[in-house]
């Protein structure tokens, strides 16, 4: 350990003597970690989106005009008696107008002629499990007061399957890029080992241990991985600050797709750890394969 500062200095000197090798390794890893980070953020965002839709009422039963409060209460009691319903909420025609006007407040053309007469009253129903929605559906369809039923399930399912596709493509791409990074580190460090054969031979002859010879190359790999992961995380943060508001404006109703800067700090730490690990593995393989000590 007392030699660590000298070994780090040796690694830095070797990097500075072959800056193009270092640049090649760093750029490939930077691209990898940018894409990895982007997929992590997309994944987090889609989970927030799915949770949001799941947390919303899963079934909305629109009531015929003139349905009295007694009928509404009867329906709500029947729903509660099934044991599968977690929550019901009655939305009157007046409340429906309020909600509609709030949602489209930026588009006066859509709201100017809307009155309580046009919009139906409704009962919003949530179940404990998505599987129980069909029971609720069957029950509601029997009710004369119910005019139409809207399912949130369709949105959630469409979103879930889209997320699954994105996630699978993401995992495939990430694995491919991580392997590319590993191989690039291996090749660059292998090249550096060949360039320093004379130095390695002299180190052996003057009594350097195997680890003393290997460690600067491992440090080199750790630096490639961690520095590029760090820079990639900063780029990702900057990109999010730049395009984040545009994305959020598309999902107006969803509060904070990527909430708090903490996620970027976790992402930075995670990427630096993964980067350093990839660099270490690449360097280890390179020293095992190309270094004879």
């Amino acid at each position: 350990m007392k030699n660590l500062p000298r070994l780090i200095k040796t690694a830095l000197q070797r990097i500075s003597r072959n800056p193009y090798h270092a640049l090649a390794a760093t750029l490939v890893m930077l691209f990898t970690f940018f894409v990895v980070g982007a997929f992590v953020l997309v994944s987090v965002g889609s989970n927030v989106l799915i949770s949001y839709f799941e947390s919303r009422p899963q079934v909305t039963a629109f009531l015929r005009d003139g349905t009295d409060s007694k009928s509404v209460e009867q329906i709500r009691t029947k729903l509660a008696d099934t044991g599968v319903v977690s929550k019901t909420k009655y939305v009157s025609k007046e409340e429906a107008v309020k909600i509609y006007k709030e949602r489209f407040k930026d588009q006066p053309l859509l709201t100017q002629n809307i009155t309580a007469e046009i919009l139906p009253a409704s009962i919003e129903v949530s179940t404990f499990k998505l599987d129980d929605l069909s029971k609720v559906d069957t029950l509601l369809r029997k009710e004369a007061a119910v005019e139409d039923i809207e399912f949130q399930r369709d949105i959630v399912e469409a979103l879930s399957s889209a997320t699954a596709v994105i996630r699978n493509i993401g995992i495939g791409t990430v694995i491919f890029l991580l392997l590319t990074s590993l191989l690039t580190t291996l090749i660059v460090i292998g090249l550096n080992i060949s360039l320093h054969q004379d130095e390695i031979e002299i180190m052996r002859l003057v009594g350097a241990t195997s680890w003393y010879i290997r460690i600067p190359f491992v440090i080199e790999g750790v630096l490639y991985g961690s520095v590029s992961a760090f820079v990639a995380s900063l780029f990702l943060w900057a990109s999010f600050i730049w395009i984040g508001p545009s994305i959020q404006s598309v999902f107006k109703d969803v509060p904070n797709l990527v909430d708090s800067p903490m996620i970027f700090i976790y992402l930075l730490l995670l990427e630096v750890i993964v980067g350093a690990t990839i660099g270490t593995i690449g360097a280890f393989i390179a020293t095992k394969k190309y270094l004879t000590v």
Binding site: R17, D198, E199, E201, I202, R204, L205, V206, G207, A208, T209, S210
Partner: peptide, 23 residues
């Protein structure tokens, strides 16, 4: 293998081509 460096510290070596590090 791990004892070899200790041997080499006991035996200094000099070569025809000097084997100095140029940098």
């Amino acid at each position: 293998a791990h004892e070899v460096p200790h041997l080499r510290r006991k035996v200094g070596t000099v070569f025809q081509d000097f084997k100095l590090l140029p940098q």
